[in-house]
Design a protein around this nucleic acid. Structure first.
Lengths: 343, 343
DNA sequence: GCTGGCACTCATGCTTGGTGAGTGCCAATT
DNA sequence: AATTGGCACTCACCAAGCATGAGTGCCAGC
């Protein structure tokens, strides 16, 4: 019994099932693929594949559909990554090249990915923890309020408003603020965000005692932004594509939508991806730890400027998904966005 | 024939249909409401209501359901606004009081509104056009790039990065920047955003000729932010609730999701609302100009700090909606958020 | 103007029987 | 030992038929 042919049968089953969304039987397989053997032989192979847990029959007299494990094998060993068409490449570059700032890049990316894959696209904002400080600005507002602005190398801007309890309009305060500004910048600029938080901690000894209270407040605020990275954001597009592939979800798309709205979940999923380098990662069905996403697959990739990956992006869809095409699209978009961010 | 009773019948039909989501017949009506007349009489009234286009029968031997016009009449004349329960009030205040900054307020508001109404909630960020300038800051980045930060009275921060084409690290540039900073602020602070754009236009005559080019670039950038308000943002939550009420949509929830993803559409809808003061506005079914939302209703309200309304928030759901409760929730959340923003 | 009664309509749900896709197994062939 | 053709068998699916009953419109009487 040839292992090769069995795998060829699995590949054919996955391809047909993805295309037709109907369980595929031995006869249909023979018509659409040149396997060079008879239907009975294919049936024997299918029985073996079912034995190994790679395919199942939804009911007695129906064809087979791949299991999660079947898709996994397909992705790992049976599918090349389909190259994108020229039109698709052009669409990517022309759309993303028109972006005017970081928000716009992210927005265009997520929409592009959604329409390219016809699936739900998710893009994480370039993460704070992996970028470094470019500038910190202190801006006195009216009265005693102080605006703290943090600018990162990835072009992201974070701001917090701080109640200082002292009158910032006084000349003394202004001078103090100016020196604080240069001290804080000196202690942080160029460092990664985690290091910068440390740098701030060592500062108090060197500054004017009168400014210490203020510095402490500023440091606390910045540390919160820097370390706790509360503000990690994701954007999403293409949720309406879920409806189209609604039959693929056993119960309903409700739980899926709920899971997707829980941004914390998405961040976890994308976050774990960036640790794997910039390769496209695929998580299939129950490989996924979150209840609402048990019958979905994720195709994700890290992206970012230069060599350090700062965030993840990807696509969420039914396990019955055209993996080669989706993986190609995710990879292409990730590399293109990375290139744009590097400039 | 008593007009009053006919309207009472309409009210009863709307209430029952909203609750049971099934066409309501004359018999069911008698059981659940004390109308003091017989089924036959109710049937006569229903025939009259159908004549007026307020209700329809989906097919011959079924009860009646309200038309858009029927809901309209119900909302305008037949429904009080249901007061919120104490628990709901407490939930609103405790949840929103915990917010730490503007982003967080908006985020919590939209989630709160979604879970309170069990519908899709939409919240527009406080609009630029209706707030005024609190501060403008110019921050030189590395090389020749300049960061322009705009802070509004509503606490919103907008930033743009500008390629100036000159070396900003030079002492001369620094001095120039300092004077520009005060000039620009002098010409804009305290003005509404539209007026501020005008103020910037009059500035060039008064400044150092060497700085004119830079000023023009800054002014152009700010004008874009100020006037074109490109960055108006909306956030959304509770899309999974659409699935639950899926049967209420004739075709599918697909088009609805698509329309909701088109933020421009949402902005238009919410924008037109703020012109009507802070009353709760209801748009029912086909009253709505957008194709995807023809079978949905919107319940919206303006909100904002003090007397000037700066943005809209609301709820999107099927026309078969519990209007009194939804309107109460929207109103309560709008007033509470307004109060928070005013502090 | 209201009511009870009555004939009529028609969506819905259930049962029934037919159809066919697909399978598993076996004996024959290479 | 692997492959193949043949064959009996299983069920999901569909369409038709039928019963049910909710709901209606209309009419004659109060």
């Amino acid at each position: 019994m040839s292992d090769d042919r069995r795998l060829a049968v699995l590949r054919a089953i996955v391809q047909d099932y993805v295309e037709t969304s109907e369980p595929v039987g031995s006869k249909a397989l023979l018509e659409r693929h040149q396997l060079g053997v008879s239907a009975a032989t294919v049936r024997n192979d299918m029985a073996a594949l079912e034995e190994e847990g790679l395919i199942v029959a939804p009911h007695t007299s129906a064809g087979r559909i791949p299991t999660d494990a079947g898709y996994r094998l397909f992705v790992d060993r049976l599918s090349g990554v389909k190259p994108l068409s020229g039109a698709e490449r052009r669409a990517i570059s022309s759309l993303l090249d028109g972006a005017i700032d970081l928000d716009d890049v992210v927005d265009r990316t997520v929409r592009l990915l959604a329409s390219l894959t016809r699936q739900v696209a998710v893009v994480q904002y370039p993460s704070l923890t992996r970028s470094s400080v470019r500038h910190i600005e202190l801006v006195p507002l009216g009265g005693s309020r102080l605006l703290v602005v943090l600018i990162t190398t990835t072009g992201r801007v974070e701001q917090r408003i701080l109640e200082t309890g002292m009158d910032l309009a006084e000349p003394a305060s202004e001078r103090m603020l100016a020196s604080l500004r240069s001290d804080v910048n000196g202690a942080t600029v160029g460092k990664t965000l985690a290091d910068a938080a440390g740098g701030l901690g060592e500062l108090p000894g060197q500054v004017d005692p009168a400014a210490r209270g203020l510095l402490a407040a500023i440091a606390a605020e910045l540390t919160e932004v820097l370390v706790e990275q509360r503000e990690e954001r994701v954007v999403m597009a293409g949720t309406s594509h879920l409806v189209r592939s609604g039959e693929d979800f056993p119960s309903s798309i409700g739980p899926v939508l709920e899971a997707l709205e829980e941004h914390v979940v998405l961040l976890k999923l994308l976050g774990s991806v960036t640790e794997q380098g910039d390769a496209v990662a695929v998580r299939i069905g129950a490989e996924n730890p979150y209840a609402g996403l048990q019958s979905t697959s994720l195709v994700t990739s890290g992206y970012g400027s230069g060599s350090d990956l700062v965030a993840g992006l990807g696509v969420v869809g039914p396990t019955r998904m055209d993996y080669p095409t989706t993986m190609a699209a995710v990879r292409a978009v990730a590399t293109y966005v990375s290139r744009i961010l590097t400039d």
